[in-house]
C-alpha cells in the first residue's frame, strides 16, 4: 500500500502524525459488527453496458468480496480482528472511521475526472439506519463520494474510480455488479428538485414501474407520499404536474420517488440547499424520520444542519481528502484535527 500512497496522502499523514503520533501503527479500536453477511442481489443478470472505466479493483482486492479478514500484502498493517474490512492505517482519517454496523465501506477510494483527482484514498464506513453527514467546503469531493456510492459517476465519461467500495461486503466496482441493480438498492435525491414533467402520481410511480414492481402501485405511491410528509398537501391533485408544486414540495416529491421503491440506502446531495428555511426544516425533519427505516447519507454545506440531523459526520477538506470521521457530537464539540475545528468554527471554508 505504501508504495501507492506516497505523495498524494502526505498531507493527511502529516496531519495525522502531528496530532496523534501513533496514528501510523494501525491499531484500530472499533470491532466490526456482522452486517456484512448477506450480499445483496446487485450482481444482476441484466448487465447494462455503461461507460465506466475501472481500475485498481484487480485480482487481489476482488478476493475480498465478503468479509476479508486474512491479512494479505495490502492489509498487513491492520491488526484488528472481526469481520469488517481492513482499513489501511496510512490512509485512515482522524476520528473513528470504523463503525460496528457498516452498510457501506469505502477503502482507498480514488476518483478521477480525466487527469484531475477528485478523491484521495477515502476510507470510511456508513452505518446502517443512521444519518451520516458529509460536510466540507465547495469542491472538496463530498458530492463525488456520494455519487460514487451508487455509481452515478459511471454516467460521466471521464470519471474513473479506483479502490473499493463495499455495499454489504460486496465491492460494487467489480465487473459482475450491475450499476442499475445497485441503484435499485441505493436511492438518490439530488441538489435541485428534479421531478419529471409528469403527474405527481406518475412521478412517484416511476421507480416502481421501471423496476417492475407493478403490484399495488397505487398503495405504494400513497405510502411513499405519506412517508415523505407530502400526502396531505397533494392528496387532491395527484393528477396534476409535479412541476406545479413549490420548490420544497418538489423536493419532498423527489424523496417520495426515491423511497417508493423501498431502497436500503438513500443518498441526498444537498437536498435543502435550494429551499427556503421553512421547506428546509421540513426536509430535515423528514431525514430524521427516514433514518428509522433507511440508511441515509447526506451531503450538506450547512454545518448547523449536519449537527442537527446526523449521527455521524465526515469532514472533507481541500482537494478531496477525508480529514475526520466520527460521531457528530464529537466532530462538532471536540474534533481531533485543528483544521476541522477551524472549519467548524468558521475560520475558513
Amino acid at each position: 500500500m505504501s508504495d501507492q500512497t506516497d505523495g498524494r496522502l502526505a498531507g493527511v499523514r502529516s496531519a495525522l502524525l502531528s496530532i496523534r503520533p501513533n496514528a501510523n501503527d494501525g491499531s484500530l479500536t472499533g470491532t466490526s459488527g456482522s452486517s456484512n453477511t448477506e450480499p445483496p442481489e446487485i450482481a444482476a443478470a441484466s448487465s447494462e453496458s455503461e461507460s465506466v472505466s475501472r481500475q485498481g479493483s484487480g485480482a487481489d482486492s476482488s478476493a475480498s468480496a465478503a468479509a476479508s479478514t486474512q491479512p494479505d500484502a495490502e492489509t498487513t498493517t491492520t491488526s484488528e480482528s472481526g469481520s469488517g474490512l481492513a482499513m489501511p492505517a496510512g490512509d485512515k482519517p482522524l476520528g473513528s472511521p470504523r463503525v460496528d454496523n457498516a452498510v457501506i465501506e469505502a477503502r482507498d477510494l480514488d476518483v478521477f475526472y480525466g487527469d484531475t483527482q477528485a478523491l484521495h484514498g477515502i476510507n470510511m464506513d456508513i452505518p446502517e439506519k443512521e444519518v451520516t453527514a458529509l460536510i466540507g467546503p465547495s469542491g472538496c469531493g463530498k458530492s463525488t463520494f456520494l455519487r460514487s456510492i451508487n455509481r452515478m459517476n459511471d454516467l460521466i465519461d471521464v470519471a474513473r474510480v479506483e479502490g473499493d467500495l463495499h455495499f454489504h461486503g460486496k465491492n460494487v466496482y467489480e465487473d459482475d455488479v450491475d450499476p442499475v441493480a445497485l441503484r435499485r438498492k441505493i436511492g438518490m435525491v439530488f441538489q435541485k428538485p428534479n421531478p419529471f414533467p409528469k403527474s405527481i402520481f406518475d412521478n412517484v410511480a416511476y421507480g416502481l414501474r421501471v423496476q417492475g414492481k407493478d403490484d399495488n402501485v397505487e398503495e405504494n405511491v400513497l405510502t411513499a407520499l405519506e412517508r415523505a410528509a407530502l400526502l396531505d398537501e397533494v392528496e387532491d391533485q395527484l393528477d396534476e404536474s409535479g412541476l406545479d408544486l413549490s420548490g420544497g414540495q418538489q423536493q419532498r416529491l423527489c424523496i417520495a420517488r426515491a423511497i417508493a421503491t423501498d431502497p436500503e440506502v438513500i443518498l441526498m446531495d444537498e437536498p435543502a440547499s435550494a429551499l427556503d428555511p421553512v421547506a428546509t426544516s421540513k426536509i430535515e425533519d423528514l431525514v430524521e424520520e427516514l433514518a428509522q427505516e433507511y440508511t441515509v447519507a447526506i451531503v450538506t454545506h450547512n454545518m448547523q444542519q449536519a449537527a442537527r440531523i446526523s449521527d455521524k459526520t465526515a469532514v472533507f477538506l481541500t482537494g478531496g481528502h477525508l480529514v475526520e470521521f466520527d460521531d457528530t457530537s464529537k466532530i462538532f464539540e471536540n474534533p481531533e484535527s485543528d483544521r476541522v475545528e477551524d472549519y467548524i468554527t468558521g475560520k475558513f471554508g
Binding site: R183, F190, Y206
Partner: peptide, 18 residues
C-alpha cells in the same frame, strides 16, 4: 432535455433504455 431528468431516472434504478 436537462441532464437532471436523466439522473433522476437513473437514480431510481432505471436502465438506459428505460
Amino acid at each position: 432535455v436537462p441532464d437532471s431528468m436523466r439522473q433522476a431516472s437513473y437514480g431510481t434504478g432505471a436502465t438506459k433504455w428505460q
